[in-house]
Design a protein around this nucleic acid. Structure first.
Length: 780
DNA sequence: TCTCACACCTTTGAAGTGG
DNA sequence: CCACTTCAAAGGTGTGAGA
């Protein structure tokens, strides 16, 4: 379904009138995307990557030939360590806001979520946009906004406040397990099947963590957020932008079942999130909806608790839209109490190579083959299997393929598999590292062999989008048992906790939530080149700060005087054996995340608040091996679609993906811009070559005029005043909550509005189909 | 574009067996 | 009691027809 910008720009009041839908600020949150501002927080990110991070930043570097990237990096380096309190306001012009608005996927909604402009803090030892330069791009704006917000936040602390006050001095490093395989998929344009019942991801999301404090407790989380605001289609063997994205379901965070565990425990094993499933079933009771109700209405948490519990056995799904691009994110939080999670420091790790497009059926045959070749469960479809595919393959690919490849050990195939076309890599089967390199070489060859045009270049998460998505952060516990277990562990942790250890959590701002533009690779061609060169920006991109949008003081948000008094459950409920604390936490997080302004903000909390003594957020860069593997996604960047056609062209010049498979990318070659300037497409990888072809198909979002109304709000937000919209919405919220409490539905004039969609700010964009689907929600 | 039934496969854990 | 093997159930895969 497509949505007209003008339609999206309807004012809230208009919406309520035209739709007959009760206006509810909760329902008008911006589209859920991604909060990441990691581009500014990524430790490993290089100046060059920084300069390239702005997906829409034409002014910063658009025209610069790829060959100049390094030079640019150097010029920016000196400006790296930008104090968070550095004067920034002057560099946050209205023009920047306009740019921001125009680049925001759902720009019309941006103003609805002031928190989206919360601080995204730069790493203290990495470059980012020079503050001396006027911010003329969305990213710049976001940065400025973040800085502004940070400055305005009395509780905010400079990045250098890290290490935290608890005295723990850790230096977490996260590596993606099976990175090589991910890169293979990424090059072709990873697709993940989503089904009604939920489908696991493959490759699996597994990480190896190091550098943690052995004794400290950590909670590891994973979430999947929209990578951009476009819908795609696979046409003529290539991914193309097919229009504006459908309304995004609010995303939850999946807390690793073993959380919390000590750093020592985490480091001893590979952290796997394979149980997380992807679904397109918005009425899935294990999905968002049932919990959404909880989140919106603390009073009925208990009911929802039951729902949640009932679905505990079926796995945990995250709801995605088919034909949309997503980016998984790994979060690491050091905290001893789950309840402190919302205002603890989140370290967000974004691995570009894990980006994928959700599909209900595989579009790219090469992806299918790669899955079959590497996924043990699909072994039956391999050449040696008895599956039907064998027949087909015999006629299609038999000549190229080596049947020996199927002899790989199933359990190891994912990391030591052969190439997509069955290129034999067995000789490396027992040497993982060598194998990885080997396979990558093969994959490169395969890419050449495969006449495949990659999907559009990942647009990076618009910083704003990224931040927004976090506004919907949810904590999705594996199940009730797990929740209890978590509580027990936390209790134990508290008992053994060091004095003061983590007792004071940051009341920060959400650090902006995390990262920003984790994928910055998008903007200009040269930027892309850097991004894909293997060293320009690291894999993962990291950000530090709470993913949940703003809420510095979560609990107060949940229990704002005069707002929830009549519906909010007693705090004691938190400890009620009948109440799942995790659920409650979810509610807290969601409420706080979605209504940061509603509950007052940084400076809005009372000194008497139980959280007032929480220490400010700590932001610290975590240097990781920089790396970025070229991807088919890089071929075209739909994003930046701003109105700047030039950028589109620039994007078409995206650098070729790096062939450097070394995560550290220390080799000179890895740091070298791949191809300079307008390199003839035939000199670039196929996936890149297609970029130009896609460019014209990138939808031009005409936001210049349509977002005017939002710009004002953003300006306010950018100045740290993010409460404007929500504060004025409180009455509506109350009204809506009453309705929910009374009838647990959102019916208005015969229309049922899924809370999930509503909260994601997609209410106005909900399609008839979605509405139809959501009718079932109330039945559950 | 999506859903579903299907065959094929791996994974998991209980049950059985032997030292 | 422990280690190992066997077996069946559960569950993950992509396929391809049909909506």
């Amino acid at each position: 379904m497509r949505y007209d910008v003008q339609e999206l720009l309807q004012t809230d009041s208009e919406i309520s009138r035209t739709n007959g839908m009760a206006y509810h600020p909760f329902l008008h949150l911006p589209r859920q995307t991604d909060f990441s501002v990691s581009s500014l927080l990524t430790a490993g990110i290089t100046p060059s990557s920084q300069s390239s991070q702005s997906p829409i930043s034409g002014q910063l570097s658009p025209q610069t030939p790829i060959s100049n990237t390094q030079q640019q990096q150097q010029t920016i380096v000196p400006q790296q360590p930008t104090p968070v309190h550095h004067p920034h306001q002057p560099y946050f012009p209205a023009a920047a806001l306009a740019a921001l608005a125009s680049h925001t996927p759902t720009g019309a909604h941006q103003h609805l979520y002031p928190g989206a402009l919360l601080p995204k803090l730069p790493p203290h030892h990495h470059a980012h946009h020079p503050l001396g330069t006027p911010y003329t791009t969305a990213e710049d704006v976001v940065l400025a906004a973040s800085l502004a917000a940070h400055q305005h936040h009395p509780a905010m602390r400079p990045l250098r406040n890290y290490p935290e006050d608890d005295g723990v001095d850790d230096d977490p490093k996260v590596t993606l397990e099976g990175k090589e395989l991910w890169e293979k998929f990424h090059k072709l344009g990873t697709e993940m099947v989503i089904t009604k019942s939920g489908r696991q991801m493959f490759p699996q999301m597994k990480f190896r963590v190091s550098g943690l404090d052995n004794k400290s407790k950590y909670i590891l989380l994973l979430d999947i957020v929209a990578a951009d605001d476009y819908r795609y289609k696979f046409h003529n063997s290539r991914w193309m932008v097919a229009g504006k994205a459908d309304p995004e379901m609010p995303k939850r965070m999946y807390i690793h079942p073993d959380s919390p565990s000590t750093g020592e425990q985490w480091m001893q094993k590979v952290v796997s999130f394979h149980k997380l499933k992807l679904t397109n079933n918005i009425s899935d009771k294990h999905g968002f909806v049932s919990i959404q109700i909880i989140l919106l209405f603390p009073l009925i948490l208990f009911i929802c608790h039951i729902l949640h519990d009932g679905g505990s056995q079926a796995g945990y799904c995250t709801i995605l839209n088919s034909m949309h691009k997503y980016q998984p994110r790994f979060h690491l939080v050091r905290t001893t109490d789950i309840l402190k999670l919302p205002y603890s420091t989140f370290r967000t790790y974004v691995f570009k190579e894990t980006e994928f497009i959700a599909v209900t059926a595989y579009q790219n045959e090469k992806i299918t083959q790669l899955k079959i070749d590497n996924n043990p469960f699909a072994k039956g479809f391999r050449d040696t299997g008895a599956g039907k595919r064998e027949k087909n393959r015999n006629s299609l690919m038999s000549s190229q393929r080596s049947s020996d490849g199927d002899k790989l050990t199933p359990s190891q195939t994912y990391s030591s598999s052969r190439g997509p076309l069955g290129l034999d890599t067995r000789q490396h089967h027992h040497n993982h590292l060598l194998n990885q390199h080997h396979n990558n070489h093969h994959i490169d060859d395969d890419d050449k062999l495969l006449d495949v045009v990659g999907p559009p270049h990942s647009p990076l998460l618009n910083s704003l989008q990224q931040m927004q998505s976090q506004a919907h952060g949810w904590f999705n516990f594996a199940n009730e048992a797990h929740m209890e277990d978590v509580r027990r562990r936390l209790q134990a942790a508290d008992d053994n906790e060091r004095d003061g250890s983590d007792s004071n959590c940051s009341d920060s701002v959400g650090g902006g939530g995390g990262g920003g533009g984790a994928f910055r690779p998008t903007t200009s061609p040269k930027e892309n080149s850097k991004a894909t060169s293997g060293s320009s920006y690291p894999s993962p991109n990291i950000s530090v700060g709470p993913p949940i949008q703003p809420p510095p003081h979560l609990l107060p948000y949940l229990y704002p005087h005069g707002i929830y008094n009549h519906v909010a459950p007693p705090l004691s409920l938190l400890h009620s054996p009948a109440m799942n604390p995790g659920i409650f936490l979810n509610a807290q997080l969601a409420l706080a995340a979605q209504h940061p302004a509603l509950f007052g903000h940084y400076s809005g909390h009372s000194p008497s608040s139980p959280l007032h003594n929480l220490k400010a957020h700590r932001f610290s860069p975590y240097s990781l091996p920089g790396f970025h593997q070229g991807s088919a996604f890089d071929a075209v960047t739909p994003g930046q679609s701003n109105t700047n056609n030039d950028r589109l062209q620039e994007r078409s010049l995206s650098s070729s993906p790096s062939h450097n498979l070394n995560a550290n990318s220390d080799s000179p070659s890895s740091n070298r811009p791949q191809s300079a300037s307008p390199t003839p497409t035939n000199q670039r990888p196929l996936s890149q070559q297609s970029s130009s072809a896609f460019t014209p198909q990138v939808p031009i979002t005409n936001n210049n005029n349509t977002n005017n109304n939002n710009n004002n709000d953003r300006s306010k937000n950018g100045n740290g005043n993010s409460t404007t919209v929500h504060k004025t919405s409180t009455p509506s919220e109350l009204k809506n909550m009453e309705k929910m409490v009374n009838g647990l539905d959102m019916h208005q004039n015969g229309n049922t509005v899924p809370t999930s969609l509503a909260s994601s700010g997609s209410v106005r964009s909900i399609s008839p189909d979605d509405q139809k689907k959501t009718i079932n929600l109330t039945d559950q």
